Simulated assay, not measured.
Amino acid sequence: MTVSDQQSNFAVGSKSFTAVAINCAAKAGEWIKTKLGNYTSLSLKYSAQDLVTEVDKGSETMIRNLIHTHFPDHSFLGEEGVEPGPEASEKALQRVRDAEYLWIVDPVDGTTNFVHGFPFFSVSIALSYKGEVIVGVVYDPMRDELFVAEKGKGAYVRGRRMEVSSDAALSKSLIATGFPADPHYALPMNMKGLQALVPQVRNVRSGGSAALHMAYVASGRLSGFWEFGLNSWDLAAGALLVTESGGKVTDTKGAPYDLGVRNVVATNGHIHEEMLTALAKADAAG
């Protein structure tokens, strides 16, 4: 099923919010794909692992302009409009999180992969209403896979309803994590968790796009995902995908997900408590 076919399926939100999100993700994703191996500028942001190209900035500008064409009064929070580092991210979110309608966008989630030509990156677009995510879209342009969720209406990929995996124990689970750009706190904490969880699970993957990891939990390809030091634009769309597919999303200490969560655990629900307990036992819950 093509992106255009899916647009007609999901043009059901109030004022077609979902259709706009899908259109933005599809257009940005197709443009990003044409730039693979063809970007011209590369710079560092917060650390040597935190990269940005003109493609990230161009994608965000395209998405912002398209959204504001339809909804000029809506607020917008995009990764490239925020100074690097966790403090700046938190401040940027605080300024807009109570807006009536807030679009939360990661224009290229997986920039490091994009820079290296590793075909695992995505466009993540979420819409929150008074602080609660009501639409989430994650688009993988390399596989032409569009993951879409509307609050209360389920989540879909390629037009099919998604369901989380049925794995009932960590020992039967394939899970994922990432390696945070923050070398002082988030990375060491994640490494502690990795050391604790690897012997307890079937295996661990690290694809390099938190939004796609969450989409893969939603679609049952992974049974769990955790990572430290993420931002609202990494998580907002993916969190709705997971919950609308029957899964569970909390912070690493078990508190319910909200836009301010930076340290996340997202699972099929069945292994959630076991995963939280394993992280806590390893002193890897933050």
Rank of each mutant, 00 (worst) to 15 (best):
E244Q: 15
A210N: 09
N23M: 11
L77A: 04
R64S: 03
I63G: 00
F17A: 05
T252E: 06
G110H: 02
P183V: 10
A210V: 15
V204F: 01
E132F: 03
V105M: 12
G224C: 07
K33A: 10
N65C: 12
A285P: 06
G254Y: 08
L241K: 04
D106M: 09
R161G: 02
G136Q: 00
S166M: 12
G154W: 03
R202L: 14
G154E: 04
F114N: 02
S223H: 06
S128G: 11
L66I: 10
V138R: 00
R64I: 07
D251F: 13
V261Q: 04
H68C: 12
E60N: 05
G154T: 06
V108F: 09
Q7C: 13
G131E: 04
G224H: 02
R205P: 01
G254N: 11
S122K: 06
F179V: 10
T177D: 04
E60R: 02
S43A: 14
L240W: 07
E244G: 03
Y216H: 15
V82T: 12
A25I: 00
N65Y: 09
R160T: 07
S171P: 07
L174Q: 07
E83Q: 15
A237G: 11
A21Q: 00
G193I: 01
P72Y: 13
R262H: 05
I175A: 01
P86Y: 13
G159S: 05
S166F: 09
L102W: 04
K91M: 15
G229M: 05
N190K: 06
E54Q: 10
D109I: 12
H270K: 14
G208E: 02
T40A: 13
A218N: 02
V135M: 01
F10L: 14
L127Q: 00
G78W: 00
A196M: 04
